[in-house]
C-alpha cells in the first residue's frame, strides 16, 4: 500500500513539522546545558542516546524510526 503522495508533496506537507521538531530538540538541549547542574546532566546516558538518534537521522539508510527505537530498547541479553 504505497503512499498516494509523491516525495516532493510529502516534503511540502511535513517540512514545517520537521523543522519544528528539530528546533524544539535544539532548544531543549540548550535549556539543560544552561541550567544549574548541567555538568552532571550532560553525562546522562539518555542524552547520549538522543545524540546517537540524531546521528541515525542523518544517515542515508532507511528505517530510521525502527533503528532509533531499537537503540532505545533494553538489550536482549539483559535479564529482569
Amino acid at each position: 500500500m504505497k503512499s498516494p503522495k509523491s516525495a516532493p508533496e510529502l516534503l511540502d506537507q511535513f517540512y514545517l513539522h520537521i523543522r519544528s521538531a528539530l528546533i524544539e530538540t535544539a532548544a531543549a538541549f540548550d535549556r539543560i546545558q544552561a541550567a544549574e547542574g548541567a555538568d552532571s546532566a550532560w553525562q546522562d546516558s539518555r542524552l547520549e542516546e538522543l545524540r546517537e538518534a540524531a546521528r541515525i537521522i542523518q544517515e542515508e539508510e532507511p528505517e530510521r524510526a525502527r533503528r532509533i527505537l531499537e537503540l532505545w530498547s533494553v538489550k536482549e541479553e539483559a535479564s529482569s
Partner: peptide, 10 residues
C-alpha cells in the same frame, strides 16, 4: 512501554 517493549514483545 518504552525500553522494555522490544524484549517483552519477543
Amino acid at each position: 512501554h518504552l525500553q522494555d517493549k522490544l524484549k517483552g514483545t519477543r
